[in-house]
């Protein structure tokens, strides 16, 4: 380090080195998890009645290490043999990331069989 550096410049360099070291350390900390394949899943967390319709809030998470792309999430409600369904796509879902989706049904899910799940995804 140069001796003619002012105290202010030394502080800047010291803090900058700490920031860079912290970032490199955090990246290195993530290295072991990058080989774990994506494992997206969907679970119902809440059902709300809104204006005589029913909002089914679904939490989609990826328990794997790698990112999942184009995650297709389907929701199906079967009541007395009649099926209504919806489908949504999440562009990218990183490892440990959570995303909230909402499916809207005309009938109360409590009156039938509600199924939500991940139907497909790709690995970018």
């Amino acid at each position: 380090m140069s001796d003619d550096r002012t105290p202010a410049e030394r502080v800047t360099l010291g803090v900058s080195t700490l920031v860079l070291a912290a970032v490199v350390g955090l990246i290195a900390f993530q290295l072991p998890g990058q080989d774990v394949p994506p494992l997206p899943s969907a679970n119902v967390v809440e059902i709300r009645s809104v204006d005589e319709r029913f909002h089914v809030v679904v939490d989609v998470t990826n328990d794997g290490g790698q990112t999942a792309a184009n995650v297709q999430v389907t929701g199906e409600l079967e009541i007395a043999g009649e099926v209504s369904s919806g489908e949504q796509t999440i562009d990218f879902l990183a490892g440990d990331e959570h995303m909230r989706l909402t499916f809207v049904f005309d009938d109360d899910p409590e009156d039938g069989d509600l199924t939500v799940g991940v139907s497909s995804f790709t690995v970018p």
């Binding site: 970032v23 490199v24 990246i27 290195a28 993530q30 290295l31 990058q34 790698q66 990112t67 792309a69 990218f92 990183a94 970018p124």
Partner: peptide, 12 residues
């Protein structure tokens, strides 16, 4: 979002 840690270090 979908960059692996090894790629990040290379990018740095």
């Amino acid at each position: 979002t979908h960059t692996e840690p090894a790629q990040m270090l290379t990018l740095l």
